[in-house]
Design a protein around this nucleic acid. Structure first.
Length: 528
RNA sequence: GGCCCCAUCGUCUAGCGGUUAGGACACCGGCCUUUCACGCCGGCGACACGGGUUCGAAUCCCGUUGGGGUCACCA
């Protein structure tokens, strides 16, 4: 039998990182079995559907490389893949359920059901519907309707025995039927609800493995009841633990950003992203610029492979040492049997570590192309930039090396791109390396005066130039290099000094030293 | 509250009766070094608790505690 799995997002506008993991596991399962992964859109609740809310989800999956064999935009033999377009199937299933006695017309009003429920809860007893407003004959229906009541369709759940099924992650599960309430499957307006739609579609799409988050575990008995009443074969179930908040076991929610920002690692991941946005000169989209949502990572320049690898290991492991999985390795190695039962909390620091590792594995040209997009988006270079501009940008990426953990980090190096703009000095660095060192400006001036004599503007040339200057003046390298770095980049930290000088070129170097000396003079005058 | 689930370092995990309880991330030291970063070396650090079963429990059973999920005319 061909393995067919599915992921069924609601069009909420955002792709949740936990949802991605669920989708990934489904995708992996289908791929490794040579089966199909299907995307179905669960939009049975018309009230909750936001216009344009599907695109970000589809874009997110595409970006991650989680492709679907059937679903929106690609179609397939079982379409339509939108539940909102499949109402007729659900209604006929509801009719069948009604006809066989597995469901009934219920004329209760919401407040009446609520009262029953509240009474049961007050007594500490499980809620068992009284079925007082159940109508099973036309006469009964007419009587209730005469009272001006409207009907929903409810499942007539068994009141004895148990529902047992095997869960590939959790093992043998057993629920007592009598603890199950009579769930509504069709609204008063005739539209159908999730549980019915879900079961009907899984059957219609030939889904063999239902792999979903554990919050659906409690829903399974009623879905099994529907499937069995309709004479469907049961799929294999597997309920995945949810992804928890950093440092806690609560389900990760996209609505609790403020809370998560109190977690140091989460905070620094978020701030890192904000810094990239700042470099782009863009105000982050407040609704989606959230590490819980996939868009965040795409905007900051993360690599999909890194995110997938991290997510794979969040609640799953192959053994005690294998950490690196590319797509092929994941597909090969994945198994539901090794999914951990306990929820796993999202660890921002570890995600970053994977990202960094994957970024470092890229060859220079690939890394450069990733960074280039950000340089263009920031307006620091144009798509058709001159060869020397491209060369300089490439040199920055190469010199920055492992300091660029995420493509967007290239925007940290504005002093190498915005050559005409005057530097903003880091106050502390300027003070420590320029102001508080009595001879710093003196040495800078000597260095600057020597610049016109530079013969070779290459990295090696600058090194030779500085070395001979050190020899001539009797300085140690530490006596000049720190102030020099601040003078030409504005910062006390950065990549190699000679690379920095070579990228900037003698003219910019000389000008910036002049400006630094002037700034130091100005500040000294202001304080004395 | 009813029902259900879960429980190994701070975090992700390995472990499926006998291990000095292993690895990764983070953290802390040191080395390297023109700064930062990388890298390398080292360190800190866990079986929630109580009963059983057993010659022997992180591993099996029961209970306690703790944490979580779910109880819609949402999905």
């Amino acid at each position: 039998m061909t393995v067919r799995t599915r992921f069924a997002p609601s069009p909420t506008g955002y792709l949740h990182i936990g949802g991605v993991r669920t989708a990934l596991f489904n995708w992996l399962l289908a791929k490794q079995a040579g089966g199909q992964f299907i995307l179905r859109i669960d939009d049975t609740d018309a009230d909750r559907n936001v216009a344009e809310a599907l695109q970000p989800i589809l874009d997110g999956f595409r970006w991650l490389g989680i492709d679907w064999d059937e679903g929106p935009e690609v179609g397939g033999p079982c379409g339509p893949y939108f539940q909102s377009q499949r109402g007729e199937f659900y209604r006929s299933a509801a009719e069948e359920l009604l006809a066989s006695g597995a469901a009934y017309w219920d004329y209760s009003r919401p407040d009446e059901i609520q009262a029953e429920r509240a009474a049961a809860e007050a007594e500490g007893k499980p809620y068992v519907p009284s079925r007082r407003w159940m109508a099973e004959t036309e006469a009964e229906r007419a009587r209730f309707e005469g009272e001006g009541r409207q009907a929903v369709v409810r499942l007539k759940m068994p009141r004895e025995g148990t529902c047992a099924f095997d869960d590939l992650v959790r093992g043998q599960m057993e629920f007592e039927w009598e603890k199950e309430a009579d769930h509504v499957i069709q609204r008063a307006d005739g539209s159908c609800l999730y549980h019915l739609a879900n079961v009907v579609d899984d059957q219609a799409f030939g889904i063999t493995h239902v792999v979903r988050a554990v919050e659906h575990l409690a829903n399974t008995p009623r879905q099994i009841f529907i499937a069995q009443s309709l004479g469907y074969p049961l799929p294999t179930y597997a309920h995945l633990p949810f992804v928890a908040e950093p440092g806690s076991k609560n389900k990760l929610s996209k609505r609790k950003l403020d809370k998560y920002l109190k977690h140091p690692d989460f905070k620094s991941l978020h701030e890192h992203g904000e810094k990239v946005m700042q470099g782009l000169g863009r105000q982050p989209e407040s609704a989606t610029f959230n590490p819980v949502i996939v868009d965040f990572y795409r905007e900051v320049g993360y690599l999909p492979e890194a995110i997938l690898n991290y997510l794979l290991l969040l609640g799953w492991s192959l053994d005690d040492h294998t950490e690196d999985f590319d797509r092929a390795a994941m597909i090969e190695a994945f198994s539901l049997e090794r999914v951990v039962k306990a929820p796993a909390s999202f660890d921002p620091a570890k995600l970053m570590s994977f990202q960094h590792r994957y970024e470092m594995r890229l060859d220079l040209e690939t890394r450069y192309q990733g960074c280039r997009k950000f340089l263009i988006a920031a307006g620091w270079m144009s798509d058709d930039a001159a060869a020397d501009i491209e060369a300089r940008a490439r040199a920055v990426v190469e010199a920055a090396g492992d300091r660029i953990r995420v493509a967007g980090d290239v925007l940290e190096y504005s002093p190498f791109f915005l050559l005409d703009r005057s530097l903003e000095y880091e106050p502390k660095a300027f003070k420590k390396r320029v102001l508080s060192d009595a001879q710093a400006t003196e040495r800078l001036a000597i260095f600057r005066d020597a610049v016109p004599s530079l013969e070779d503007p290459s990295v090696a040339g600058w090194e030779a130039f500085l070395q001979s200057l050190l020899e001539r003046e009797g300085w140690s390298i530490g006596q000049v290099i720190h102030a020099l770095r601040v003078a030409v980049t504005g910062s006390a930290v950065g990549f190699g000094m000679y690379e920095s000088l070579a990228i900037l070129g003698p003219e910019v170097v000389a000008r910036r030293i002049d400006e630094t000396i002037a700034e130091a003079t100005r500040q000294q005058a202001a304080t004395s």
